[in-house]
Simulated assay, not measured.
Amino acid sequence: MLGKTANGLFWMYRYMERAENTARLIETGQRIALTRLNQTDEEWLSVLQSADCLEGFNATHDEISRDLAVDWMLRSKDNSSSVVSSVNAARQNARLVRTAITGEVWEAVNSAYMALKKALSRKVSERDLPSVLRLIRHHAALVRGVTHGTMLRNDIYDFARLGTFLERADNTARILDVKYYVLLPSARSVGTSIDNVQWESILRSVSARGGFRMEYGAGGGPREIADFLILDKRMPRSLAFCVGKLCDNLDYLATEEDAGAASREKVGMLRNGLLSKSIDDILDYGLHEFLQKTLQELSMISRQIEQDFRFYA
């Protein structure tokens, strides 16, 4: 496969996943903010930090407010990670690799673009925000479902999966970081009803509440939630699950020339290093520090994949 085609597939699916994940991050911030005793718009600073778009926001805004932050993350064309920018980029990449994807996949991506272009053509009110966030998740899920149902399991599919799971792992780490490091009001809140509601919001934001309840019933607190979202290999949005899928798809792409060897090595180091720790070791190390280190390693893996498969050749 040509590097440019691999690049288009990788980023098409990465951008679709990013659009969904941005919606999930906004929902997380919204739910957690509602549990705070002293609500201030400054809380959205942490959400912008976690989305890695605070610098761009500050360059174009003099103050931080909920409305401005949500609009920046949903609609701003100046924000390369906004939902609008991500869906536009996904569609552009889909057009570039039109002959490599099925007609159904193209139709799903184009439908997402048209529906979200209409839904986000104007500022989203607080009342309409939940339905808009559901619409974003719905279209991302539709693209993913059509991909699973119509695509051959070949190198095209493997590059699509690499983009999906790299982006998903990145997002899970960011959502966890919003709760644990930034939005927790104080040490006094740990273990209180406010703290428990916030952790419940984290589960909901990654569609993990049902699975968690199946595993832990009515019990399970912050330690178990962190363990579930980081180390449980059965949970489709956990870090361990996503990194495992990266390993699998890089193995499928291995050739006699050993293409992707450096990428496989870096993913293996993450799986056998940070993700081999127990949850108690992770908490002792520092959850924020662990998540930041994981994000750095995921970024290095992404750059290595681009180099190994000559995306820009």
Rank of each mutant, 00 (worst) to 15 (best):
L2G: 13
T5H: 12
L9D: 01
L9R: 02
W11R: 09
W11H: 11
R14E: 13
R18L: 10
E20H: 04
N21V: 04
A23S: 06
R24E: 01
G29S: 00
G29M: 00
Q30E: 14
I32H: 07
Q39M: 11
E42D: 12
S46C: 02
L48T: 03
S50E: 03
A51I: 02
C53P: 03
L54K: 10
G56A: 12
N58S: 14
T60K: 13
D62R: 15
D62I: 11
S65T: 11
D67F: 12
S76M: 04
D78V: 13
S80V: 03
S82D: 06
V84K: 08
V84E: 06
V84R: 10
S85N: 08
A89L: 07
A90P: 03
R95D: 08
A100P: 05
T102C: 05
E104N: 11
A108R: 07
V109H: 08
N110F: 10
S111V: 01
Y113T: 00
K117W: 00
R122W: 13
S125T: 12
R127M: 11
P130C: 01
L133K: 04
R134F: 04
L135A: 11
R137D: 05
A140E: 00
A141K: 08
A141G: 10
A141N: 12
L142Y: 08
R144I: 07
V146G: 02
D155G: 02
Y157D: 07
F159L: 15
L162V: 13
G163Q: 06
L166Q: 14
E167D: 06
D170N: 02
N171Y: 09
T172Y: 05
L176A: 09
V178C: 04
A187K: 06
R188D: 05
S189N: 00
T192C: 00
T192D: 00
I194C: 02
D195E: 08
D195K: 03
D195N: 11
N196P: 05
E200K: 11
E200M: 11
S201W: 06
V206K: 01
V206L: 01
S207H: 02
G211L: 07
E215D: 00
G217D: 07
G219V: 00
R223E: 05
R223A: 05
A226R: 02
A226N: 04
I230S: 04
L231F: 08
P236S: 04
P236L: 09
R237D: 07
S238E: 06
A240W: 04
A240I: 06
F241R: 15
C242Y: 09
V243C: 10
G244S: 13
C247L: 15
N249W: 14
N249R: 15
L250K: 11
L250G: 11
E256W: 07
D258M: 12
A262G: 13
R264T: 03
K266C: 06
K266H: 07
L270V: 10
L270N: 09
L270W: 11
R271V: 11
L274S: 06
I279Y: 05
I279T: 01
I279M: 08
D280E: 10
I282N: 07
Y285S: 12
Y285R: 14
G286F: 01
L287H: 04
H288W: 02
H288A: 04
E289L: 02
K293R: 15
K293S: 13
M300W: 11
Q304G: 09
I305A: 14
R310S: 15
